[in-house]
Amino acid sequence: MSEPIITIKDVNSIYRDSFGHKIYALRNVNIELYDGEFISFIGPSGCGKTTLLRLIAGLDKPQSGTLSIQGNVIGKPDHERGYIFQQPTLFPWKTVEDNVAIGLKARGVYKENKNKIGEYINMIGLNGFEKAYPHEISGGMAQRVAIIRALINEPKILLLDEPLAALDAFKRIEMQSLLIKIWKTMKTTMAFVTHDVDEAIALSQRIVIMTSRPGKIRKIIDVKLGGRRDRNNDEFIALRKIILEELQLASILPEPEYSI
């Protein structure tokens, strides 16, 4: 593996529930994310996987411990740590191309990078929709726009917080290949939160299994499958079994996924 890009040391994230009890969203979390890897975080609701991603993004602060990117402590959110939310959250008053341009405009580098917008829109196959408003495109298209909106900033790491959870099965598979394509061509580090075991196996090089209450890392599994991953392949099935056992979910039904 290459250099670590994100180093997370002894991180605790605590909140209080409505009774005033301390709840550990994350307890003593230590992990390094390597430059250029595709790493997935999987676990039941409340295991702190989203919290961890938000800490890396700088959207929240840990109660104790440090997070750093290439040796620098993570402070405020920054364009070098792109974040894809579960909902595309495009701005409804901006057209597709204006949404994509936000990062460039906000950073004041729009003029010199103008032509990149068209290239990125081409990459996700949305040419012809540049002037469309978000409500005129489908949910899958909107999520693709959200992805290139973050990518156009050329982030060092892309944090993906269940970005495919709101999509139907066909769109998910389409989007999975888009993510792999982006990862391979742009060499961006991908940190991917999901609670779909198959999705994690299909995409990642490493899978971090987390448990809830308190949110902790239980195990990190290296995925040694090749480039093309067949879901009916024996190794795939074996890996799925291991992960499900680790999640102690093998015997009970997985949680339903809600899309709002």
Binding site: P77, D78, H79, Y83, T89, G103, A106, A150
Partner: peptide, 12 residues
Amino acid sequence: SYFEVARTLGAS
């Protein structure tokens, strides 16, 4: 969420 999206895109 609008603010969070914009901040991760580098907005002041």
